[in-house]
Amino acid sequence: MILYEANGPTISTVSARNGRLFARCVAIHWSLRISLFITCYNDVLFPKTGQAVVTVLERLGHTVEFRPTQTCCGQMHYNSGYHMDALPLMEKFLEDFHDAEVICIPSASCVSTIRDHYPVMAEKSGSKDLIRQVNEILPRVFEFSELLIDKLGVEDTGAYFPHVVTLHCSCHSLRSLGVGDKPERLLRNVKGLTFVPLEDYDQCCGFGGTFAVKNAEVSSAMAADKVKCILNTKAEVCAALDNSCLMQIGGTLGRDHAVTCTMHLAEILASTQSANGGTLA
């Protein structure tokens, strides 16, 4: 990857390698100011993911901002039926990011809450102003892999990660966002990385928010199935777009003393030869 810092537009030569298909394309884009919505659980439990997002986006020549007033999209409250508590969190998100140019969210399920449920909540509130605000912000909201491929046109992020990696496709990324093979394309372009597909990749890991606690036994049985498929791949790392799934999968792997670990996609893409030499999480 070659980056030319021009006065305005950044010209990047991107090599896109998708399976057997080799293609080169030249993309011309403006250096963007990208606002990171880290999400509450990444902030508190998985700060490394946020750091990785910043690393990748800056490496691609963009400016990252972090608005410190941000907290939570309201997903847990909404999905659990506490809609009166979710509403102020939606309002807060809309307020915090109302003038953001591009919003990057390293969590498919939070993006899904914003895309699928904010319109419903706004509609139910009856407030025309809220409906307008939601409509205005939605085109600027991107999940991390969507941002890279759809907005920035990048498949090769210049990462180096010499390990065997499999990918768990989180339910929200697959069925709500419809990311398709975007995360896989990003992984296959990482130098040194060996990608192994996951059997039953579209099956839920069993996290499901409060489901994991309310129906802990069923949730654990689902996780056990998922982990069995992951261990069958012999991968060193299981990646995903959602740390919530990875907490479920990683927690089960850890309890089984498995050597396979979990990493958010951003953490793999952040890894370069010069930075950390592609060490495991």
Partner: peptide
């Protein structure tokens, strides 16, 4: 504890 019965937690 429903979580940690079967899973580690970070």
């Amino acid at each position: 504890g429903q979580w940690t019965n079967t899973r580690d937690m970070p």
